[in-house]
């Protein structure tokens, strides 16, 4: 028995080493960094964290990160669900083509597509404002005004992320047995009731896991905000990732940047615990 577990340990060692180098070491190092002073010479304990608590910008970043992630995930899920339904109902022959085209936003490197969006949002020469002008509407300061800038970064995030939801939900939709819908149709369920009583419950686990996964990725987003607004105007579109970069790299205070990024951990951990607990519970009962 002893021998067996030793062999098992050695066989798992490459993976353990990989996790240790790529996950544990960076995480440990980030925690270590967060406890140093600006010049990284002195241990200050939780000093950086207490400093952050006192800064207004920090609380704004917390708020903006939550608004950004939650709004984007909700809309990505909604749009993904609706589009998945449409694609699911397209006859098999044309479906591949549509699926491929709808995945394009997700496949293009975000930094690149964000550059295209940057042009679309340009206050003077952009296509958006040009179209608005056709209808006699005043040009919109897409990235120049706090409200609009927040709207714009969320919009682009939805544009990039919705196809992921679409493809996950499409796979889930395909796994719902057709006979359940037929049984529901005979039981007297309307189109909407079939979605509510059959589709949604059958997809709940996929919806939850996709939402959790997307919440983590969206919370930790960097490229969209960085390229579109660089956190502006006046830091109002910063989220954890971009503000940590601004403070740590651009502001030469790496320990403070590390402290900012570490704040994502407890927030995401709470969300993960709730969602995963729900999935486990339902997994056991059905």
């Amino acid at each position: 028995m002893q021998r067996k577990s030793t062999i098992a340990f050695f066989m798992a060692l490459p993976l353990i080493a990989l996790i240790a180098t790529l996950v544990l070491y960076p995480a440990g190092y980030a925690i270590h960094l967060a406890t140093l002073n600006k010049s990284m010479e002195r241990f200050v304990g939780l000093g950086n964290f207490f400093f952050l608590f006192k800064r207004e910008t920090f609380w704004m970043v917390v708020q903006q990160s939550c608004i950004f992630a939650i709004t984007a995930v909700i809309f990505k899920a909604l749009i993904g669900f609706v589009v998945a339904h449409f694609v699911h109902n397209i006859p098999a022959r044309g479906q591949r083509k549509w699926r491929g085209m709808l995945l394009v936003p997700w496949v293009i490197p975000p930094a690149m597509s964000c550059l295209a969006w940057l042009w679309l949002f340009d206050p003077s020469y952009s296509a958006f404002n040009w179209i608005l002008a056709l209808f006699g509407i005043e040009p919109v300061p897409w990235t120049g005004h706090t409200g609009w800038a927040r709207f714009s970064v969320i919009l682009v995030n939805i544009w990039i992320g919705a196809p992921f939801f679409m493809i996950m939900y499409l796979a889930a939709l395909k796994s719902v047995p057709e006979q359940l819908y037929e049984a529901a149709a005979i039981d007297g369920a309307s189109w909407w009731q079939r979605i509510w009583y059959v589709t949604l419950p059958m997809m709940r686990n996929i919806i939850a896991i996709t939402a959790l996964f997307s919440l983590i990725v969206t919370f930790a987003n960097f490229d969209i905000v960085r390229v579109l607004t660089a956190g502006g105007p006046i830091d109002t579109t910063h989220i954890f990732g971009t503000w940590s970069f601004r403070v740590g790299i651009e502001g030469y205070d790496i320990p403070l940047g590390a402290a900012v990024s570490l704040f994502m951990v407890p927030i995401l951990a709470v969300a993960a615990v709730f969602i995963l607990r729900d999935i486990t519970r339902r997994g056991n009962e059905s």
């Binding site: 047995p177 006979q179 359940l180 037929e182 049984a183 529901a184 005979i186 009583y197 059959v198 419950p201 059958m202 709940r204 339902r282 059905s286």
Partner: peptide
């Protein structure tokens, strides 16, 4: 106003 029993029962699993 019909009721149907399917080959694989088609019970709602949830």
């Amino acid at each position: 106003d019909i009721a149907m029993v399917f080959q694989n029962y088609a019970l709602y699993p949830h």
